[in-house]
Amino acid sequence: MSANLSTRVFDSVFEMLPNEANPSPLVRINTLHPLAAEIAAGTSTFELFAKLEWMNPFGSVKDRAASYLIRELEAKGAIWPDKADKKGRGIVEPTSGNTGISLAAMASVKGVHMRAIVPEKVPEEKKVMLRIAGADVDVLTDAMCPSPGMGEGALGMARSYAKAQGDRYVMPNQYENHANVQAHIDTTGPEIWRQTGGKITHFFTSLGTCGTVTGVATFLKAKNKNIKIIAVQPSAGHDVPGIRNKDELHVTKLFDASLIDEIIEVPFEKAYTSALGLCQREGLFAGPSSGLIFEGARMVLQRDKPAQGLGVAIFCDNVFKYISSMTKHLPALAGEP
């Protein structure tokens, strides 16, 4: 039986991975629409949608890149499970969590082992999720002395495994591998184009590996070069897991400034208040990176007040993996005074 998208019956979890025929949902922003007053006054018809990437099978936008990375490794014969006469060769990857969770879940189904290298500041929930998904987890500490922006720790350690134990590990390297970008050229971009009937005028996302922004922008700009690509970044010294300030982008080779119309900076604490607002007023259980992107969209739209158009904001993952981060930044959520 092949996937039946009308009844949503699938032969395996892999068939649930998103694509143009099986897109992640777009949900209209209603109560918190940044131009609600203008719409009520009849001076704007701008529509804003959230693309709910947490509806992907392993819970985040990273399912897309991870599935392409694994597919590429399989096609090259670079990974295999343990066999009677041959030890398996698995995956090692530096990750703030979501790519690792997706990679580990997919690798586990295939019997391939996965080692995730995560920075200490990644929330505990994500570390546990990585282990639940079947990964071995190395948590790197820089507690003795911080080295902001040096990009060495997790990336260097994953490279070390791949170099010193190449018979056991290969590193897909989401920061350099074009498969990360291709996933969004092939899936996210076409999904948005189809879901909006080609009416999209504004695309909002964050910066991390930059696979999403580069891939989606490549596709959308080819369709309509006037579509505005807006990247939302947290303020320097931020504490929003999984995304980067532009000063931290030296670790990725997938950033292409020529595709981005604007990078807007948001005070990082807003990621948390904005996420909470989305949870409580839109019923969208958005995590902090989604909150940050929404806040960036709000700032741009309230500044520019477009009379018409259609915006799509990537909502990377939901809030469940960030309970500790949410309570750290919004202590009232823990019932504290």
Partner: peptide, 21 residues
Amino acid sequence: DVDTKQYGAGHVPGAVAFNWN
């Protein structure tokens, strides 16, 4: 190293590791 797990992942052949802490 700051974090001695780095040595365990891979190191210069013949190197020994001393933990600063």
